[in-house]
């Protein structure tokens, strides 16, 4: 090293270079998608003719059979199939972006993703503020599940002071909160996914488990050995429905999705899809 300044300069350059090379490497070889630009009303109008429509689909990869990752690392599931069908109809290109459920709404708002199709329940508070839903495409009911050998009543379970497992940020957690507010005495055990919450029930960390039929039924038909280990103790409230979430401004996109959904749901393919994913 000729001068002392170069010594330090080289150190700094190496540091920064290592940083950015690593980033560049990841982007180019592992396929990082770029964030949506010019957010406001990106899909509020029909795009100019001939311009490819690229939709970044955000989903929680921990919600089989609606959305999960297969062994090749690809998105798979009922909602994925639905979105693929829609995209094919219009000739859109889909980019699949797994995103953690706890921050998925913020990611949608900020344009990291363009739609959420991930078994997302249409709720008034979600729908009013930040995201607007498509027409509902699947309905289900909330259930409270216990181990098969637990003979306590619903009242006893809810007043046991013991943990009841839910997925954090889910509608099941909302139900737990609602029940707690009504004065029941149990502890809410928040876990990262419906599957993890179910496991907590199975291995005894929780005595109860709040889920929805949309998750539980297909999961049980895929894992039949579980059917003898747990039982549905009660249902909670009225049935609820899933919708595809979009940003409020993206009027055109939502209309297109609605149009396609109605077409799909009235075609024989819909029942095939439901059957394929054990959802009928």
């Amino acid at each position: 090293m000729k001068t002392p300044t170069t010594a330090l300069a080289i150190i700094l350059i190496i540091g920064i270079a290592v940083g950015f090379t690593a980033g560049w490497f990841l982007r180019n070889y592992l396929g990082e998608t770029s964030k949506t630009t010019t957010l406001k009303g990106k899909f509020s109008q029909p795009p100019p003719l001939g311009k490819e429509v690229v939709i970044v689909l955000g989903f929680d990869a921990s919600y089989p059979p609606f959305t999960y990752i297969n062994e090749r690392g690809e998105a798979e599931g009922f909602d994925i199939d639905v979105m693929k069908w829609i995209a094919k109809k219009y000739g859109w290109r889909l980019v699949f972006k797994p995103w953690d459920w706890s921050t998925i709404v913020t990611a949608l708002e900020n344009g990291d993703i363009d739609v959420i199709a991930s078994g997302m329940t249409i709720t008034p508070e979600r729908a009013s503020r930040k995201i607007w839903f498509s027409i509902p495409y699947y309905s289900y009911i909330h259930e409270i599940v216990v181990r098969a050998d637990d003979n306590r009543s619903l009242e006893e379970i809810l007043n046991s002071g013991q943990p009841i497992a839910v997925q954090i940020g889910s509608t099941a957690e909302k139900w737990a909160d609602k029940l707690l507010k009504k004065g029941y005495r149990f502890r809410k055990l928040c876990l990262g996914s419906y599957v993890e919450a179910l496991e907590a029930l199975l291995d005894g960390r929780a005595v109860g488990y709040i889920t929805d039929s949309a998750f539980l039924n297909p999961y049980l038909s895929k894992n039949p050995e579980l059917k003898t280990k747990i039982k549905v103790l009660a249902t909670l409230g009225a049935s609820e429905a899933y919708g595809i979430a979009t940003r409020p401004e993206d009027v055109w996109l939502r209309e297109k999705i609605n149009e396609a959904l109605s077409e799909l749901m009235n075609s024989p393919e819909w029942n095939e899809l439901l059957r394929k994913w054990h959802l009928e």
Partner: peptide, 9 residues
């Protein structure tokens, strides 16, 4: 490596 490199600089 990215974090460590930038952090080093």
């Amino acid at each position: 490596l990215g974090g460590l490199g930038i952090g080093f600089a």
